[in-house]
């Protein structure tokens, strides 16, 4: 493997880890997705179009891998914290979280992971890096109107779930 790719790995692994965990909701699936994403990125590097920033290209591989393989691999295991320590560690990693709002974030976590995969991907990309709707449309290769409608639908579903309203 050449040095350029080593640099990519060192530069983008942390962010990709966060994206994988946000998408999969659990660490072991996220690690699988992380490895698969890098595997595909390395394998298809020859097709990489340098006009697109590398991170967006990498994230598009990640979400497509997640989306396409969802039925086979990822998300079979629902988010389960093996120990209380895991749970606390996870909650502490969220900025602004404190014991007072732990329940809210746990509820949000469950609600996000219960979203249909397409809506979940849009929500995660929108808040993960503050991508604009246009950028998400580019990454997912779907029309901007669809990005908007999925985002809108996901947010209204989450709001109702968090407020314990019927869906």
């Amino acid at each position: 493997m050449n040095l350029v790719f080593e640099k990519y790995i060192s530069d983008y692994s942390a962010d990709l880890t966060r994206l994988c965990i946000s998408l999969c909701g659990n660490v072991s699936d996220a690690d699988d997705l992380f490895q698969d994403t890098w595997y595909k990125a390395i394998k298809n590097y020859g097709k990489y179009n340098f006009d697109m920033p590398f991170d967006k290209w990498l994230y598009s591989i990640c979400v497509n891998t997640y989306k396409d393989s969802l039925r086979l691999f990822y998300n079979k295991r629902k988010m389960i914290f093996k120990t209380e320590e895991d749970k606390t560690e996870f909650l502490n990693s969220i900025p602004d979280s404190c014991p007072d709002n732990y329940d809210d974030y746990l509820q949000l976590h469950t609600a996000v992971n219960a979203l249909p995969k397409k809506q979940k991907i849009v929500i995660v990309l929108y808040y993960f890096k503050d991508y604009s709707l246009n950028e998400i449309s580019e990454i997912l290769k779907i029309p901007i109107g669809t990005v908007k409608s999925r985002l809108n639908l996901a947010k209204s579903t989450l709001k109702r779930r968090l407020n314990n309203e019927e869906i």
């Binding site: 880890t17 996220a30 690690d31 996870f90 990693s93 949000l108 996000v112 929108y126 808040y127």
Partner: peptide, 12 residues
């Protein structure tokens, strides 16, 4: 909340 949740630092 979503912004905080999605920007969480990874403990892993």
């Amino acid at each position: 909340m979503l912004s905080n949740y999605c920007k969480k630092s990874s403990p892993y």
